[in-house]
């Protein structure tokens, strides 16, 4: 342990570490703006910055393939889906004062307490652990070989899961058929929430 600590200066960071730290600060800042912004579309756009920053961190950790998958799937499709969701639920474009719920301060307390506890545990556990970053660990060739040699069965199961999720999303978001729509209409007639008239308009 002491030899390992001596070979790496504890307070003399390498270039990769400095780059990781700077990108990490940017990522964390974007994440904090994402969860605290009162403008919903801006929150989604800051999420792009946070996810892109995480992709850069993957590149710095020499996991190339994961980085590009991250860019493709998260930045390319998940954020677009979220923006579509914001549009379809008619989210307010400007500043919406009720973006945060009433339990904001307890949530902040819980988050800070868990952050303090986890940072303490993690730093204490990995104080003398270094990653040696020589050579690329996660190029597309290496990832593909391990994925299709050792992880084929979970990979195929995952494709079935994606198909099931796709079918489920279509079934959920389809406007109900005749019988289903009638059942929903009668069920909604019994509800006396203030949102019910708006909902019935949306059904047509």
């Amino acid at each position: 342990m002491t030899l390992a600590a001596a070979s790496h200066g504890f307070l003399s960071p390498t270039g990769v570490e400095i780059a990781f730290l700077l990108v990490g600060i940017a990522t964390l800042g974007a994440a904090i703006v994402t969860v605290s912004s009162r403008q919903l579309v801006h929150a989604a756009l800051w999420l792009v910055v946070a996810l892109g920053g995480i992709a850069v961190e993957y590149l710095l950790l020499t996991a190339e393939f994961i980085a590009w998958v991250q860019v493709l799937i998260y930045v390319g499709s998940v954020v677009v889906l979220l923006l579509f969701g914001l549009m379809l639920t008619k989210a307010p474009i400007g500043r919406s004062p009720d973006a945060d719920s009433g339990n904001r301060w307890p949530a902040l307390a819980v988050a800070l307490a868990s952050a303090a506890a986890l940072v303490w545990v993690v730093v204490d556990a990995f104080r003398t652990t270094w990653i040696t970053l020589d050579g690329v660990q996660g190029s597309a060739a290496v990832s593909g070989r391990s994925l299709f040699q050792y992880w084929v069965l979970p990979f195929e199961a995952l494709s079935v899961l994606l198909l099931a999720a796709l079918v489920g999303a279509i079934v959920l978001s389809r406007k109900g058929g005749d019988t289903k729509g009638a059942a929903e209409g009668s069920a909604k007639g019994a509800v006396r929430t203030p949102a019910a008239p708006v909902a019935r308009e949306g059904q047509r």
Partner: peptide, 8 residues
């Protein structure tokens, strides 16, 4: 690279 950076 120190492992604490990505973990933290």
């Amino acid at each position: 690279m120190h492992l604490a950076y990505p973990a933290v």
